[in-house]
Simulated scan of single mutants.
Amino acid sequence: MSAAGNVNSITPPDFQAQKGKTPLVCLTAYTTPMARLVDPHCDLVLVGDSVGMVLHGLPSTIGVTLDMMIMHGQAVRRGTERALMVVDMPFGSYEEGPQQALRNAARLMAETGCAAVKLEGGETMAETIAFLSRRGIPVMAHVGLTPQAVNTFGGYKVQGRGGDGDRIRQDAVAVSEAGAFSVVLEKVPEPLARTITEEIAIPTIGIGASPACDGQILVVDDALGMFTDFRPKFVKAYAELGRDAEAAIAAYAGDVRQNRFPAAEHVFGDIAQSISRGNAA
């Protein structure tokens, strides 16, 4: 396990150099066990502020704090050796200006050992991205649907349709020129994602965007089918662990209520013998 601050096998320059090559594989992780599972298979592991909704039951990412991101970042750091580790900057931790962003990004990197931070926004964040990049903080940008601005958008709606596509394209160009090493394109039409990917010099990472992107990212819990009540259109579930977990929990509850668990093989010493005698009787 890498100690905080050690360099993983994949660095931001390595990641950026994969532009136009083999598609980049990215997933979220919020805990040490999950990080250990995804690390061997991924080029990038994102400690996303989606942790607020996925693990903490928040209605959006807006309530996520810097301390929450640091705690989960430290957990993921303990399970990540190969993949590039990136941590989201939460709402309110960077919008005030470059100096605020620098203080909080530096704290994230120092306390989690991550190699880069991610922040949302296009042209409005270009100055901040450039400021951080010049000071040794690699930045992954995020344009299109930016969940921290969900109230401005009026919900989790596709962005960049029709004439609005120029806004998203300009955002992507701006963050690329500002020094971001990659950019997430979220919930934008396929032709727009394809155009942006062809136009800018940094890798585009799609989530509900396009197979033309340079890579893809999903929330790992979505990919594993952990949720049985909602599944976004852009998600492909590679397992149905939510349904399996419900069935397993129901089976456990039934065994306890019917005195089938614990059985003799689960108990120590004389109690195990008495259970065996009781079953024989």
Rank of each mutant, 00 (worst) to 15 (best):
V64P: 03
M226S: 12
A251Y: 00
A272R: 02
H41G: 13
G144L: 02
V86H: 06
A3S: 13
P59R: 01
P232A: 08
T204M: 01
T32W: 04
V117F: 04
G215D: 01
L132D: 04
E95R: 10
A3N: 11
V64I: 01
A209D: 06
V219S: 00
G208T: 05
R103M: 09
F131H: 12
A223R: 06
P12V: 06
A251S: 13
Y156R: 10
D214M: 07
V235A: 07
D229Q: 11
V38F: 01
C42G: 03
F15V: 11
A83V: 01
A83L: 02
P138F: 04
G20T: 06
F261H: 13
T80F: 03
P98R: 04
A201S: 15
G254W: 05
F181T: 05
M109A: 05
L44G: 02
S182C: 15
T22C: 12
K187G: 00
E240S: 11
L241Q: 12
A35R: 09
V117H: 02
G254E: 13
A101C: 05
A105Y: 00
T31N: 05
V150T: 14
A247F: 01
C213G: 07
L24W: 02
F230L: 10
V219H: 05
A35Q: 05
A178V: 07
F131A: 01
F261W: 13
N104L: 09
P138V: 08
G92Q: 03
R135L: 09
L102V: 08
S2T: 14
R135V: 02
Q148G: 08
M34L: 12
I137C: 01
K21T: 12
T146S: 07
L27C: 03
